[in-house]
Design a protein around this nucleic acid. Structure first.
Lengths: 193, 193
DNA sequence: CCTACCGATCGGTAGG
DNA sequence: CCTACCGATCGGTAGG
């Protein structure tokens, strides 16, 4: 277990950033959650923004991995565009439901990042959204999906999916997987011919 | 034109709260947008939180009015559950697209309100969401809408709708009304039998 | 990882 | 609506 402390800081910060927002969370808030003095955090991180970036960067990678895996599985099973879309939605929803702090900070706190980091994260978000748009456009080309503006459909779906982080309780009566199935169903119905 | 200055403050604050968030926006930021000194704001408002509450309270009323109007129109025309749902979605989407600052602050900054104000706003949000759930449940009872958990369907739709504030440009190639039509279409398709 | 401390900025008040 | 100012808190550093 190397870098455990650093990880603890990121986990505690994710929870605080999610519930209070980055700007309203002080370095001392994060330290207190770990029973440290505020200044002691700086033995492990260079700045508050560094902690935010680490979280957001990790979140971006998780979403990219989930998308890649969903697409690879769809390729391997040679499924149609409808099932490909469903498995992407399922993957995204599952990730948000399982790690709402990560997803919520990724979705809303990136604007507190400085210039380069911010644009790098935005570029990755755009690329992700672009992949989803392409899947939707492909489905329209084969006639499996109804004709709509793929950009609008993608924005519609991503907002719905990311919204899960705002209300889903992982310890509630509904499992992340069940939730993901419902969302995939709603998404497919919304877009299928 | 009474209370113009007060209104200007709220408008400037909405824009700043939307783009930077409430916590990252200082009283002096708001004042600067109006060419005032920071302390001068306090001739018009009692506190920074007061400004936030005024915005969020106004936003809540706007959404309540829009919902009421959509339901009244549906009642007057005796339309079915499908068209009733469509007109509610259209009304909500139009409002978010026309006033993204108001909608975005309402959707995300309420947590910076203190105890009573916060719970009052949350109660109104819950009531609004409850109305949407009821419309969905009614549509399922008549067989116009497919059987799903109305709470999940409502959360799905509201997240998608509120997400509009995050990307829609009122001066872009798509009008608020066209956007609203697309969203109503997606919503109806997602839920219809 | 702590104590001690820094300059900057915060929301807000006094008094005009 | 302004100037002058307040105590509190902010992110971060020095030195151990």
């Amino acid at each position: 277990m190397i870098e455990t402390r650093r990880r603890q800081i990121e986990v505690a910060a994710s929870e605080l950033f999610r519930s209070q927002g980055y700007a309203a969370t002080s370095v001392r808030d994060i330290a207190r959650a770990l029973d440290l003095q505020g200044a002691s955090l700086y033995s492990h991180v260079a700045s508050k923004e560094d902690v935010l970036f680490a979280i957001v960067d990790r979140a971006a990678s998780r979403f990219e991995d989930a998308l890649r895996a969903a697409e690879a599985a769809a390729d391997a099973n040679a499924v149609g565009p409808l099932e490909r879309l469903a498995s992407i939605v399922r993957a995204h929803a599952t990730l948000v439901a399982r790690e709402p702090e990560l997803a919520s900070v990724f979705a809303t706190e990136w604007r507190h990042l400085g210039g380069e980091r911010r644009s790098s994260i935005l570029a990755r978000r755009d690329a992700y959204e672009g992949r989803l748009r392409a899947v939707i456009a492909d489905g329209m080309a084969t006639g499996d999906l109804a004709m709509t503006d793929p950009a609008i459909a993608a924005a519609f779906l991503l907002s719905a999916l990311n919204g899960i982080a705002g209300w889903f309780r992982p310890d509630g009566r509904l499992s992340a997987e069940d939730l993901a199935d419902r969302y995939a169903d709603l998404a497919v119905r919304a877009l299928a011919t």
